[in-house]
Design a protein around this nucleic acid. Structure first.
Lengths: 166, 166
DNA sequence: TGACTTTACTTGTATTATACAATTATTGTT
DNA sequence: AACAATAATTGTATAATACAAGTAAAGTCA
């Protein structure tokens, strides 16, 4: 009974869910771009800025991993931030291969401003939802992100592929 | 009292929410890529394929609007699908400037396969969540996507910007 | 200790996706 | 009929990304 009920509902809701995710992907990025392009910070830089503001100092590899990006990509983004005076490179005393990347004062300010701006945006957006749905959103989004974490040393590869070419 | 309580909780939850959204953005895209790259369909093509499968036939402008992309971008993606035999261009009898784009049989098959693959992926992912959270996710994601809809003829521009350069 | 392997990062190279600008043809308005 | 608006294409340029190759430093093992 219950099992039939679940199967019956799944497909249209799942489709709406997936459609919502795809749209969300686009809109989150666009929102961030709209909120940061005014101060000459690119989207990729912005992602790194915010991650650094949150995580503090770390190596290039560390941030590449956190952002699930290729090392070369991250290395370049770091370089662009350093050049813009938003981040600093410090030698790691324990390992000369490694450098510790940290936000400069200017970078911290910029991150703060971006965070404030985005907070305001999302707060306004969420406040337009009914309370129940707002609570649900606040709870569920981090969970979903976690559930979709497939990029890590211990993560199993994403199953699937439409060509059955295993 | 209640007001204080709300304000007090907002910031850390809002941050987690935003962090989750940023991570979700990355992971939705990566998941799609992982699930479709095996059959020579690029991510952009895939987005269009799925949208066409869902919306049926439409003009180039129509799909550009649906996907919130620039006309030139969409025009090129359509061209790539047509070349791959996945979509067809039909003249619009009522307006010689316009063409009606529709999936070919091959395109419909491909979209079906991708949808099946993604459905399986997300269904597996959601089944790992507790029922309450699964329900919440299925409900909230489409709502969030809608709430963030800022790209349309009647949509007001996204407020914000960190530079107060209005 | 030395040889070899692994790690951290940079740089080269190429691809993908995107938007703004310019253009052409068609349709709509006055 | 003249002009404005619309639909789409093409030109151009940029941003973001990953794979590959290379260098230097650290780790491992005989």
């Amino acid at each position: 009974m219950l099992s039939d009920h679940t199967i019956e509902r799944t497909a249209p809701e799942l489709r709406a869910f997936r459609q919502g995710l795809r749209a969300l992907e686009r809109r989150v990025q666009q929102a961030l771009d709209d909120q940061t392009s005014c101060c000459g910070v690119s989207v990729a830089q912005c992602h790194l800025l915010l991650e650094m503001a949150e995580a503090g100092a770390g190596s290039i590899g560390y941030f590449a991993e956190r952002l699930e990006l290729d090392l070369s990509t991250l290395s370049r983004t770091v370089e662009s931030l350093v050049r813009a005076g938003l981040a600093l490179r410090n030698a790691d005393p324990g390992d000369r291969r490694r450098q510790v990347i940290v936000l400069s004062d200017k970078g911290r300010e910029r991150a703060g401003a971006i965070n404030a701006s985005c907070d305001a945006y999302y707060e306004a957006m969420l406040s337009r939802l009914p309370a129940r749905q707002r609570e649900a959103a606040l709870e569920v989004v981090p969970l979903l992100a976690d559930a979709m974490k497939a990029r890590g040393p211990d993560a199993e590869r994403i199953e699937g592929g439409c060509c059955s070419r295993e």
